[in-house]
């Protein structure tokens, strides 16, 4: 198993409060890795430190290393926008940009790659098809994205993220605002996408993790309690706290 992201001794403080405590994990390439744990355990913070969105918050201090493709992104002198472009983010609820459906997908392509202006319509179509949204929106590509249903918006956000050719997809409870059918569509999509991408997803829904995880990282109070393959994790947990969580003690 080849690892895509290698996190070493990651500590993160907000003010004096320690949010992440000495996190050491590896995230395998072309697999779905689920970060699991009760709310407030630091899952989302861990996810956001991967593409340095933690820079946006005041008083955040990070130490340790996050190595992606042999480069420590925390201490890289590479442009942060280039690091972020490598990772598509799917948030808890969809945040379509204030523009048309077409432009939402084209936005990332336009700002990062001006050479192939002519191919933009094809690429938009390709990515909308990739998330099974094309048939639903092909007649109204130029109407505002805000008119779509929330499930459609979330798929649009996924297409928008895929359009900048990321290698990694970060998802922060991407189904929490969606109805069961839309949730299922997203989950299904992730299983297909892992052929080409490394998927990291945060969730607190145990059943969702069981359905799609290849690899699980279980966090509790800022620490990684246990991590391993999904099979191993669900059938043969080693830690007491994991066992308690799987029985539903923390929920």
């Amino acid at each position: 198993m080849k690892s895509k992201i290698d996190i070493k001794n990651l500590n993160l403080f907000i003010g004096k409060q320690q949010i992440l405590k000495n996190v050491n994990v590896q995230i395998p390439e072309n697999k779905i890795t689920i970060i699991l744990g009760p709310s407030g355990c630091g899952k989302t913070t861990l996810l956001k430190s991967l593409n340095r969105l933690t820079d946006l918050y005041e008083d955040v201090k990070v130490s340790g290393e996050i190595i992606i493709d042999n480069e420590d992104i925390l201490h890289s002198n590479q442009d942060v926008t280039a690091i972020r472009k490598k990772m598509g983010l799917l948030a808890q609820r969809p945040y379509p940009l204030p523009m048309s459906i077409f432009k939402n997908v084209a936005y990332g392509i336009r700002i990062s790659d001006s050479e192939n202006k002519k191919t933009i319509p094809q690429r938009v179509e390709y990515h909308l098809k990739q998330v099974n949204l094309w048939d639903e929106v092909k007649d109204r590509l130029h109407s505002p994205a805000s008119r779509l249903s929330i499930g459609q918006q979330q798929r649009l956000c996924l297409a928008r993220g895929l359009a900048v050719d990321p290698e990694i997809i970060l998802a922060d409870e991407p189904t929490s605002a969606l109805d069961p059918i839309s949730s299922q569509a997203i989950e299904q999509k992730f299983i297909e996408l892992k052929e080409q991408y490394t998927v990291v997803m945060v969730t607190h829904i145990l059943r969702q993790a069981r359905r799609i995880a290849d690899y699980v990282i279980f966090m509790y109070l800022g620490e990684v309690v246990e991590c391993g393959t999904a099979e191993e994790f669900f059938s043969n947990p080693k830690e007491e706290r994991t066992k308690a969580y799987l029985k539903g003690a923390f929920n």
Partner: peptide
């Protein structure tokens, strides 16, 4: 803040986020 994060995740610079989003 979610919209801000979404825009940055697509690789936009902060000025692009400011003026376009």
């Amino acid at each position: 803040v979610g919209l801000f994060e979404a825009s940055l995740s697509l690789g936009s610079t902060r000025s692009e986020t400011a003026f376009r989003v």
